[in-house]
């Protein structure tokens, strides 16, 4: 049976993609940012996930103001890196996992989540930057990806409670899939940042670190945070952090944090990254 063993959270800041694409990710001045992913690059080679369910938000790329899906799942065969106005990132085409994606979609809808189904779309930095940060510069992405796009651009975004519940429903769906697959769920976006208005540049280190602390065991309390509180405390775009709750919901109640990285600033944004593995005991308990 398919199984979710681990998950990770990471910011998806576009500048990181620009740095990598210019071949400057090993430059000394960026070391404080990229060194925090060295562990991750070794870890992912040992983990060898077959499929990553990658939770991100589209930034006016595949979706514009015509259609704004709250939760959209990619069921396509492949996704091209998008031209976001300065040419497409020179990274591999993203291979989908349509069979598993359709299984998850059917299960989610039957569990009460009215998903929007996407068969063709380009994917922007929200999806490709996390792949680059974790897998590095590769000829081919070493796993299949199911994009899960969440609206965080137009208010209101889905609530934290709904995101957490969606994560739990994804886990239930994956565990009913008959093929032996190692599946990971990644939550991306955040941490604190605000890209508009006189308050632009807001960073709330204390809030971000508390969020990362609480995500491990007190995620039910985090799920009660309203979008207004995210905006007030962590900036208009800080509310992307709600997507980390989908990842958290897809894991066991008991997880081990095996890595954490936090750095300010990357461009306008606080960078956050952590990795969770389901603990063995909880894996047995939660296995059925």
């Amino acid at each position: 049976m398919a199984k979710i063993i681990a998950g990770l959270g990471t910011s998806h800041i576009p500048l990181l993609g620009h740095i990598i694409d210019k071949g400057e990710s090993r430059a000394e001045n960026w070391a404080p940012i990229f060194d925090g992913f060295q562990f991750t690059k070794r870890w992912i080679k040992e983990q060898k996930p077959d499929v990553v369910i990658l939770v991100y938000n589209d930034h006016a790329t595949a979706f514009d103001m015509k259609i704004i899906p709250t939760f959209a799942i990619g069921c396509g065969e492949e996704y091209r890196p998008a031209d976001e106005g300065y040419g497409a990132r020179p990274v591999p085409t993203v291979k989908g996992a349509p069979k598993l994606a359709w299984h998850i979609t059917e299960s989610l809808i039957k569990q009460g989540f009215d998903m929007t189904i996407v068969n063709e779309m380009d994917v922007d930095h929200g999806l490709t930057v996390p792949l680059s940060m974790v897998f590095g510069e590769v000829e081919e992405w070493p796993c299949q990806v199911i994009p899960l796009a969440v609206n965080t651009v137009v208010y209101p975004a889905p609530t934290g409670e709904r995101c957490l519940a969606l994560g739990k429903a994804i886990r239930a769906a994956v565990e009913q899939f008959p093929e032996d697959l190692n599946v990971q769920v990644w939550g991306t976006g955040g941490m604190s940042h605000q890209l508009l208005g006189e308050r632009a540049g807001l960073i709330n280190r204390e809030w971000d670190l508390a969020f990362m602390d609480d995500l491990q065991s007190h995620y039910e309390a985090l799920a009660k945070i309203s979008q207004v509180e995210y905006i007030r405390e962590s900036g208009t775009e800080g509310s992307e952090m709600v997507m980390w709750l989908i990842m958290r919901g897809a894991l066991n109640h008991e997880v081990r944090e095996i890595h954490r990285h936090y750095y300010v600033p990357v461009s306008n944004t606080a960078l956050g990254h952590l990795i969770y593995e389901n603990t063995d005991a909880a894996a047995c308990e939660g296995g059925e």
Binding site: V153, V154, L196, G197, E198, R199, I231, R232, T236
Partner: peptide
């Protein structure tokens, strides 16, 4: 709007 008292901020609502 519960966010109208956040300074220097426009929330992109309906």
């Amino acid at each position: 709007k519960p966010y109208s008292n956040i300074p220097g901020t426009t929330v992109f609502d309906g």
